[in-house]
Design a protein around this nucleic acid. Structure first.
Length: 424
DNA sequence: TCTGGGGTCCTAGGACCC
DNA sequence: TCTGGGGTCCTAGGACCC
């Protein structure tokens, strides 16, 4: 059996941990740059405001059931509370796979439904008492079924649900498009095959499922049948790419400001790269231009206004200064005078382990591919003294007008001594 | 008239997740 | 005026090898 533990309205619950006055009120947490709603409390959902609604459309509106509360996103806080929950799970389960900041799969030590139920309730109570976050927990034979059990558990007063041996009735009540692995596109094709519920998907012939959604969808169907196809992904596989991009607080129109933003995101992504002990072979630099009607596609269907270029580093590296030198060489071709930029970003690819085996060039003397000692020192200093005590001048020492807006930021109450809560 | 059989690597695009 | 930021996997097709 596998369990799924999932924090309820996670970001909102985190904000409530450090500010109990938010309890019972309609609260939403905003995306970076105070853009749109990415987490909502139950009270907020009850007002009928959808996920992804832009903040500017809501901030001046009045709602009957009390004033809306908005929080800027505070990832330092959410990340810390998430780590605390995972550490409890590691104590209590045979194995834990953290799936996202607010979800983890666990392999429980119990087997019988009664034992699982009691175990789940105890786990839930412990997380609530130790961290302050309410969770939903679901148990089932596969990850996909555990997702379903979790959704049911969340709606129960106990917060826990163990999927019965024969879940046909439950699956029949769940629309196919709510199944994990079925997104926005597949339901159209599924309807054409008269596959409407999770049970329909489970019971459909393999060849039909394959023709609609390939082996990926077939795996989902097998999971619904109780045959595990999605394994424990632990083992910490290295990422294939590392990205850092941000929308700007104000539109950027100068070359210097755009290059400065890219230098910042390069430095951030490089820190992430070094944390994984990886070197990047090259990168993609891109920027997004503001154009009329670009948001007409809605939350995720934006017009494609990205311009960018690709550069390869002289050899795979994790040294920010080497990267910045290479990136600058192509930058003139990217910048368009007169354009208004709203976002920029960088993506590293061709990642390999520092100090590991690599494919050398037959005609070029092989140099060792080691982590940069300079940047190991800089990372250590920043870890000790604060995230950006030591940085490249290219990142800018002026106003940084492109910095994102976070007007309603809560304290980093669990990770920063200066921002501890004061309890009267 | 009629023309093999087995691979690899890369890229773009589509689908999905949180 | 104003709308996030990360990722993954799979497939098809092209170019190439013998």
């Amino acid at each position: 059996m596998v369990g799924l533990v999932d924090g309820n309205n996670f970001f909102v619950s985190c904000e409530r941990v450090v500010n109990p006055k938010l309890n019972g009120r309609p609260v939403a947490v905003l995306s970076n740059n105070d853009g749109c709603c990415v987490a909502r409390s139950n009270e907020f959902k009850a007002l009928g405001i959808k996920m992804g609604t832009p903040y500017y459309q809501l901030k001046d509106r009045e709602f009957p059931k009390g004033d809306l509360v908005f929080c800027s996103s505070n990832y330092e806080l959410y990340g810390d509370l998430s780590r605390r929950i995972v550490s409890i799970l590691r104590d209590e389960a045979l194995d834990v796979e953290q799936y996202s900041i607010d979800e983890a799969f666990i392999w429980p030590p119990k087997r019988s439904p009664d034992d699982l139920f009691a175990y789940g309730r105890r786990l839930r109570a412990k997380i609530l008492q130790w961290v302050g976050i309410p969770c939903g927990i679901g148990f089932a034979p596969t990850k996909t079924l555990a997702k379903i059990a979790n959704h049911i558990g969340k709606k129960r007063p106990e917060g826990v649900f163990v999927l019965p041996d024969d879940p046909a009735e439950i699956l029949a009540s769940i629309p196919a498009d709510e199944v994990w692995g079925v997104g926005r596109r597949l339901p159209v094709k599924l309807r054409a095959e008269r596959i409407l519920s999770a049970k329909d998907l489970r019971d459909a012939p393999d060849d039909v499922i394959r023709s609609v959604g390939g082996v990926t969808l077939l795996r989902t169907a097998m999971e619904l049948r109780g045959k595990p196809c999605l394994m424990n992904e632990n083992g910490g596989a290295d990422p294939d790419s590392i990205t850092c991009s941000r929308s700007f607080g104000e539109q950027v129109t100068t070359k210097d400001a755009l290059m400065e933003s890219i230098a910042n995101f390069t430095a951030q992504a490089a820190t992430k790269l070094r944390r994984h002990g990886l070197l990047a072979s090259g990168c993609n630099v891109y920027a997004q231009v503001v154009t009329a009607g670009m948001f007409e596609g809605g939350f995720s269907g934006w017009a494609d206004n990205f311009h960018g270029y690709t550069v390869m580093f002289p050899q795979p590296t994790d040294a920010t200064n080497v990267m910045l030198r290479t990136i600058r060489e192509g930058f003139d071709a990217l910048f368009m005078p007169g354009a208004r930029y709203r976002k920029s970003g960088i993506m590293f690819f061709g990642l390999e382990k520092a100090g590991g085996a690599f494919q050398a060039d037959l005609f070029v003397p092989a140099e060792k591919r080691e982590a940069s000692p300079l940047y190991r020192t800089i990372d250590a200093l920043n870890a000790k003294l604060g995230r950006t005590k030591v940085f490249s001048a290219a990142e800018g020492i002026g106003k940084r007008s492109w910095k994102m807006r976070r007007a309603m930021l809560s304290p980093r109450a669990t990770t920063n001594w200066a921002e501890l809560l004061v309890v009267k």
